[in-house]
Protein backbone atom coordinates (compact mmCIF):
# COMPACT_ATOMS: atom_id res chain seq x y z
CA UNK A 1 0.00 0.00 0.00
CA UNK A 2 1.24 3.42 -0.89
CA UNK A 3 1.31 5.78 1.99
CA UNK A 4 -0.67 8.90 1.18
CA UNK A 5 1.49 11.97 1.35
CA UNK A 6 0.67 15.62 1.30
CA UNK A 7 0.87 17.02 -2.24
CA UNK A 8 3.93 19.24 -2.42
CA UNK A 9 4.10 22.34 -4.58
CA UNK A 10 7.68 21.63 -5.63
CA UNK A 11 7.31 17.97 -6.64
CA UNK A 12 3.72 17.88 -7.85
CA UNK A 13 3.49 21.20 -9.64
CA UNK A 14 6.75 23.01 -10.29
CA UNK A 15 8.91 20.01 -11.18
CA UNK A 16 6.70 18.41 -13.87
CA UNK A 17 5.88 21.77 -15.44
CA UNK A 18 9.55 22.73 -15.30
CA UNK A 19 10.59 19.56 -17.12
CA UNK A 20 8.16 20.28 -19.95
CA UNK A 21 9.32 23.90 -20.18
CA UNK A 22 12.94 22.76 -20.33
CA UNK A 23 12.16 20.28 -23.11
CA UNK A 24 10.30 22.98 -25.05
CA UNK A 25 13.21 25.40 -24.75
CA UNK A 26 15.70 22.75 -25.90
CA UNK A 27 13.45 21.89 -28.85
CA UNK A 28 13.08 25.59 -29.63
CA UNK A 29 16.86 26.13 -29.70
CA UNK A 30 17.26 23.13 -31.99
CA UNK A 31 14.57 24.49 -34.29
CA UNK A 32 16.24 27.91 -34.25
CA UNK A 33 19.50 26.42 -35.47
CA UNK A 34 18.00 24.23 -38.20
CA UNK A 35 15.63 26.91 -39.51
CA UNK A 36 18.14 29.76 -39.51
CA UNK A 37 21.21 27.81 -40.69
CA UNK A 38 20.41 27.69 -44.47
CA UNK A 39 20.15 31.49 -44.72
CA UNK A 40 23.25 31.93 -42.59
CA UNK A 41 25.23 29.50 -44.79
CA UNK A 42 24.14 31.40 -47.92
CA UNK A 43 25.13 34.67 -46.34
CA UNK A 44 28.52 33.35 -45.25
CA UNK A 45 29.16 31.86 -48.71
CA UNK A 46 28.32 35.17 -50.43
CA UNK A 47 30.55 37.09 -48.09
CA UNK A 48 33.26 34.49 -48.55
CA UNK A 49 33.69 33.75 -44.87
CA UNK A 50 34.11 30.23 -43.65
CA UNK A 51 33.04 29.39 -40.13
CA UNK A 52 33.17 26.39 -37.87
CA UNK A 53 29.99 24.65 -36.86
CA UNK A 54 30.05 26.16 -33.40
CA UNK A 55 30.46 29.63 -34.90
CA UNK A 56 27.55 28.90 -37.22
CA UNK A 57 25.41 27.93 -34.24
CA UNK A 58 26.29 31.24 -32.60
CA UNK A 59 25.41 33.16 -35.75
CA UNK A 60 21.98 31.50 -36.09
CA UNK A 61 21.17 32.72 -32.60
CA UNK A 62 22.07 36.34 -33.31
CA UNK A 63 20.27 37.21 -36.55
CA UNK A 64 18.43 40.53 -36.75
CA UNK A 65 15.43 39.13 -38.62
CA UNK A 66 15.66 35.39 -38.05
CA UNK A 67 13.23 32.90 -39.57
CA UNK A 68 12.97 31.50 -36.07
CA UNK A 69 14.11 33.74 -33.24
CA UNK A 70 15.95 32.06 -30.39
CA UNK A 71 14.26 31.92 -26.98
CA UNK A 72 16.75 34.35 -25.43
CA UNK A 73 16.13 36.86 -28.24
CA UNK A 74 12.39 36.72 -27.62
CA UNK A 75 12.95 36.87 -23.87
CA UNK A 76 15.11 39.98 -24.13
CA UNK A 77 12.62 41.63 -26.51
CA UNK A 78 9.85 40.83 -24.05
CA UNK A 79 11.94 42.18 -21.19
CA UNK A 80 12.63 45.42 -23.03
CA UNK A 81 9.00 45.84 -24.10
CA UNK A 82 7.57 45.27 -20.64
CA UNK A 83 9.99 46.37 -17.94
CA UNK A 84 12.33 48.40 -20.12
CA UNK A 85 9.81 51.06 -21.11
CA UNK A 86 7.05 52.92 -19.24
CA UNK A 87 3.70 51.16 -19.54
CA UNK A 88 2.20 54.21 -21.22
CA UNK A 89 4.71 54.02 -24.06
CA UNK A 90 3.59 52.87 -27.51
CA UNK A 91 6.50 50.42 -27.38
CA UNK A 92 5.28 48.79 -24.22
CA UNK A 93 3.69 45.37 -24.62
CA UNK A 94 1.87 45.97 -21.35
CA UNK A 95 0.16 48.94 -23.01
CA UNK A 96 -0.75 46.89 -26.09
CA UNK A 97 -1.87 43.93 -23.99
CA UNK A 98 -4.10 46.28 -22.02
CA UNK A 99 -5.69 47.64 -25.23
CA UNK A 100 -6.45 44.10 -26.38
CA UNK A 101 -7.53 43.03 -22.91
CA UNK A 102 -10.07 45.84 -22.61
CA UNK A 103 -11.86 44.86 -25.81
CA UNK A 104 -11.50 41.18 -24.85
CA UNK A 105 -13.25 41.77 -21.54
CA UNK A 106 -16.00 43.91 -23.03
CA UNK A 107 -16.61 41.35 -25.78
CA UNK A 108 -16.49 38.52 -23.25
CA UNK A 109 -19.08 40.28 -21.12
CA UNK A 110 -21.37 40.82 -24.13
CA UNK A 111 -20.80 37.25 -25.30
CA UNK A 112 -21.53 35.74 -21.91
CA UNK A 113 -24.74 37.72 -21.51
CA UNK A 114 -25.81 36.92 -25.06
CA UNK A 115 -24.91 33.24 -24.70
CA UNK A 116 -26.86 32.91 -21.43
CA UNK A 117 -29.89 34.68 -22.92
CA UNK A 118 -29.84 32.40 -25.95
CA UNK A 119 -29.55 29.34 -23.70
CA UNK A 120 -32.46 30.48 -21.53
CA UNK A 121 -34.50 31.07 -24.69
CA UNK A 122 -33.65 27.68 -26.13
CA UNK A 123 -34.47 25.82 -22.92
CA UNK A 124 -37.77 27.62 -22.33
CA UNK A 125 -39.23 28.39 -25.76
CA UNK A 126 -39.81 25.25 -27.84
CA UNK A 127 -39.87 27.23 -31.10
CA UNK A 128 -36.38 28.56 -30.39
CA UNK A 129 -35.20 25.09 -29.41
CA UNK A 130 -36.19 23.79 -32.83
CA UNK A 131 -35.04 26.74 -34.90
CA UNK A 132 -32.10 28.40 -33.27
CA UNK A 133 -29.29 25.96 -32.69
CA UNK A 134 -28.50 25.20 -36.37
CA UNK A 135 -28.09 28.94 -37.01
CA UNK A 136 -25.81 29.35 -34.04
CA UNK A 137 -23.65 26.50 -35.25
CA UNK A 138 -23.61 27.92 -38.77
CA UNK A 139 -22.49 31.27 -37.38
CA UNK A 140 -19.35 29.62 -36.06
CA UNK A 141 -18.44 27.94 -39.34
CA UNK A 142 -17.96 31.29 -41.06
CA UNK A 143 -14.24 32.18 -40.92
CA UNK A 144 -13.73 35.04 -38.51
CA UNK A 145 -11.09 36.62 -40.71
CA UNK A 146 -13.71 37.08 -43.45
CA UNK A 147 -16.37 38.49 -41.16
CA UNK A 148 -14.22 40.79 -39.05
CA UNK A 149 -13.48 43.43 -41.75
CA UNK A 150 -17.16 43.55 -42.70
CA UNK A 151 -18.23 44.13 -39.13
CA UNK A 152 -15.65 46.91 -38.78
CA UNK A 153 -16.66 48.55 -42.08
CA UNK A 154 -20.40 48.31 -41.45
CA UNK A 155 -20.11 49.67 -37.93
CA UNK A 156 -17.81 52.46 -39.10
CA UNK A 157 -20.50 53.42 -41.62
CA UNK A 158 -22.88 54.02 -38.75
CA UNK A 159 -20.18 55.86 -36.84
CA UNK A 160 -19.37 53.13 -34.35
CA UNK A 161 -15.60 52.88 -34.11
CA UNK A 162 -12.97 52.16 -31.53
CA UNK A 163 -13.54 49.63 -28.79
CA UNK A 164 -17.06 48.43 -29.63
CA UNK A 165 -16.42 46.89 -33.08
CA UNK A 166 -13.45 44.90 -31.78
CA UNK A 167 -15.45 43.83 -28.74
CA UNK A 168 -18.28 42.66 -30.99
CA UNK A 169 -15.91 40.33 -32.81
CA UNK A 170 -14.98 38.87 -29.43
CA UNK A 171 -18.68 38.59 -28.67
CA UNK A 172 -19.22 36.72 -31.92
CA UNK A 173 -16.67 34.10 -30.94
CA UNK A 174 -17.47 33.88 -27.24
CA UNK A 175 -21.27 33.66 -27.12
CA UNK A 176 -21.19 30.24 -28.79
CA UNK A 177 -19.48 28.13 -26.10
CA UNK A 178 -21.56 29.90 -23.45
CA UNK A 179 -24.84 29.24 -25.29
CA UNK A 180 -24.05 25.57 -25.93
CA UNK A 181 -22.70 24.98 -22.41
CA UNK A 182 -25.58 26.73 -20.71
CA UNK A 183 -28.22 24.85 -22.72
CA UNK A 184 -26.64 21.69 -21.38
CA UNK A 185 -26.36 23.17 -17.88
CA UNK A 186 -29.94 24.40 -17.69
CA UNK A 187 -31.08 20.97 -18.83
CA UNK A 188 -28.80 19.12 -16.41
CA UNK A 189 -31.23 18.70 -13.46
CA UNK A 190 -32.28 15.08 -13.00
CA UNK A 191 -35.87 14.04 -13.71
CA UNK A 192 -36.28 13.38 -10.00
CA UNK A 193 -35.39 16.95 -9.08
CA UNK A 194 -37.78 18.29 -11.70
CA UNK A 195 -40.54 15.97 -10.41
CA UNK A 196 -39.83 17.21 -6.91
CA UNK A 197 -40.33 20.83 -7.94
CA UNK A 198 -43.45 19.78 -9.85
CA UNK A 199 -44.82 18.05 -6.75
CA UNK A 200 -44.45 21.37 -4.89
CA UNK A 201 -46.43 23.02 -7.68
CA UNK A 202 -43.40 25.25 -8.32
CA UNK A 203 -43.73 27.72 -11.18
CA UNK A 204 -41.41 27.58 -14.20
CA UNK A 205 -39.77 30.68 -12.78
CA UNK A 206 -39.16 29.03 -9.39
CA UNK A 207 -37.84 25.86 -11.01
CA UNK A 208 -35.53 28.07 -13.06
CA UNK A 209 -34.03 30.01 -10.18
CA UNK A 210 -34.04 27.35 -7.49
CA UNK A 211 -33.04 24.36 -9.61
CA UNK A 212 -31.90 25.03 -13.18
CA UNK A 213 -29.64 27.99 -12.46
CA UNK A 214 -27.72 26.49 -9.54
CA UNK A 215 -27.43 23.17 -11.41
CA UNK A 216 -25.93 24.98 -14.40
CA UNK A 217 -23.17 26.76 -12.49
CA UNK A 218 -20.40 24.18 -13.15
CA UNK A 219 -21.34 24.19 -16.84
CA UNK A 220 -21.24 27.98 -16.81
CA UNK A 221 -17.68 28.13 -15.60
CA UNK A 222 -16.52 25.48 -18.06
CA UNK A 223 -18.12 27.44 -20.90
CA UNK A 224 -16.76 30.84 -19.96
CA UNK A 225 -13.29 29.37 -19.65
CA UNK A 226 -13.48 28.53 -23.35
CA UNK A 227 -15.27 31.79 -24.09
CA UNK A 228 -12.66 34.02 -22.48
CA UNK A 229 -9.90 32.47 -24.56
CA UNK A 230 -12.05 32.80 -27.69
CA UNK A 231 -12.69 36.45 -26.80
CA UNK A 232 -8.99 37.15 -26.74
CA UNK A 233 -8.53 35.52 -30.14
CA UNK A 234 -11.46 37.60 -31.39
CA UNK A 235 -9.95 40.82 -30.08
CA UNK A 236 -6.59 40.09 -31.71
CA UNK A 237 -8.21 39.12 -35.01
CA UNK A 238 -10.36 42.25 -34.78
CA UNK A 239 -7.24 44.38 -34.62
CA UNK A 240 -5.76 42.98 -37.82
CA UNK A 241 -8.13 44.32 -40.53
CA UNK A 242 -8.73 47.64 -38.78
CA UNK A 243 -5.16 48.69 -39.11
CA UNK A 244 -5.42 49.28 -35.40
CA UNK A 245 -2.67 51.44 -33.97
CA UNK A 246 -2.59 49.62 -30.68
CA UNK A 247 -3.12 46.13 -29.33
CA UNK A 248 -1.43 42.75 -29.60
CA UNK A 249 -2.95 42.35 -33.08
CA UNK A 250 -1.44 45.60 -34.31
CA UNK A 251 1.95 44.55 -32.97
CA UNK A 252 1.65 41.27 -34.88
CA UNK A 253 0.69 43.16 -38.02
CA UNK A 254 3.49 45.71 -37.69
CA UNK A 255 5.95 42.92 -37.00
CA UNK A 256 4.97 41.13 -40.17
CA UNK A 257 5.15 44.31 -42.30
CA UNK A 258 8.74 44.87 -41.29
CA UNK A 259 9.69 41.20 -40.87
CA UNK A 260 10.40 41.83 -37.20
CA UNK A 261 10.05 38.16 -36.30
CA UNK A 262 11.37 38.73 -32.81
CA UNK A 263 8.65 41.30 -32.15
CA UNK A 264 6.01 38.97 -33.53
CA UNK A 265 7.07 36.21 -31.18
CA UNK A 266 7.23 38.58 -28.25
CA UNK A 267 3.71 39.80 -29.01
CA UNK A 268 2.50 36.21 -29.39
CA UNK A 269 3.91 35.30 -26.02
CA UNK A 270 2.42 38.40 -24.45
CA UNK A 271 -0.93 37.32 -25.91
CA UNK A 272 -0.66 33.82 -24.50
CA UNK A 273 0.33 35.14 -21.09
CA UNK A 274 -2.82 37.27 -21.10
CA UNK A 275 -4.85 34.22 -22.17
CA UNK A 276 -3.36 32.08 -19.41
CA UNK A 277 -4.07 34.74 -16.82
CA UNK A 278 -7.68 35.08 -17.98
CA UNK A 279 -8.29 31.33 -17.98
CA UNK A 280 -6.64 30.99 -14.57
CA UNK A 281 -8.79 33.81 -13.23
CA UNK A 282 -11.97 32.12 -14.46
CA UNK A 283 -10.76 28.85 -12.99
CA UNK A 284 -10.23 30.44 -9.57
CA UNK A 285 -13.64 32.13 -9.76
CA UNK A 286 -15.19 28.74 -10.58
CA UNK A 287 -13.48 27.05 -7.64
CA UNK A 288 -14.45 29.78 -5.21
CA UNK A 289 -18.06 29.62 -6.40
CA UNK A 290 -18.12 25.83 -6.07
CA UNK A 291 -16.75 26.13 -2.53
CA UNK A 292 -19.34 28.74 -1.60
CA UNK A 293 -22.06 26.47 -3.01
CA UNK A 294 -20.91 23.71 -0.71
CA UNK A 295 -19.41 21.41 -3.32
CA UNK A 296 -17.37 18.49 -2.07
CA UNK A 297 -13.72 19.58 -2.04
CA UNK A 298 -11.66 17.68 -4.59
Amino acid sequence: MNKLREPSLLFDRIFPVGVIVALLVIGWYAATFFLNAPYQRDLNARQGVSVTTSELVGQTMRQQKPTMPAPHQVASALWKATLGVPVTSKRSLVYHAWVTLSSTLLGFLFGTVLGVLIAVGITHIPALDRSFLPWIITSQTIPMLAVAPMIIVILAAVNITGLIPKALISTYLSFFPVAVGMVKGLRSPEAMHLDLMHSYDASTWQAFWKLRVPASVPFFFTSIKVAVAASLVGAIVGELPTGAVAGIGSKLLAGSYYSQTIDIWAALIAGSVVAMLLVALVDVAGRVTARVMGARPT
Partner: peptide
Protein backbone atom coordinates in the same frame (compact mmCIF):
# COMPACT_ATOMS: atom_id res chain seq x y z
CA UNK B 1 -43.41 12.75 -2.02
CA UNK B 2 -40.30 10.77 -1.09
CA UNK B 3 -38.28 9.42 -4.01
CA UNK B 4 -36.07 6.35 -4.35
CA UNK B 5 -33.07 8.59 -3.91
CA UNK B 6 -32.94 11.44 -1.45
CA UNK B 7 -32.88 13.94 -4.34
CA UNK B 8 -31.45 16.67 -2.15
CA UNK B 9 -30.03 19.68 -3.96
CA UNK B 10 -26.26 19.37 -3.50
CA UNK B 11 -25.74 23.14 -3.33
CA UNK B 12 -28.15 23.52 -0.41
CA UNK B 13 -27.50 22.72 3.24
CA UNK B 14 -29.75 20.21 4.97
CA UNK B 15 -31.90 22.90 6.56
CA UNK B 16 -32.15 24.78 3.29
CA UNK B 17 -33.13 21.55 1.50
CA UNK B 18 -35.83 20.85 4.07
CA UNK B 19 -37.01 24.44 3.67
CA UNK B 20 -37.14 24.24 -0.14
CA UNK B 21 -40.86 23.38 -0.46
CA UNK B 22 -41.69 26.10 2.05
CA UNK B 23 -39.79 28.65 -0.04
CA UNK B 24 -41.71 27.51 -3.10
Amino acid sequence: YVFQQAALFPWRTIESNVGLPLEV
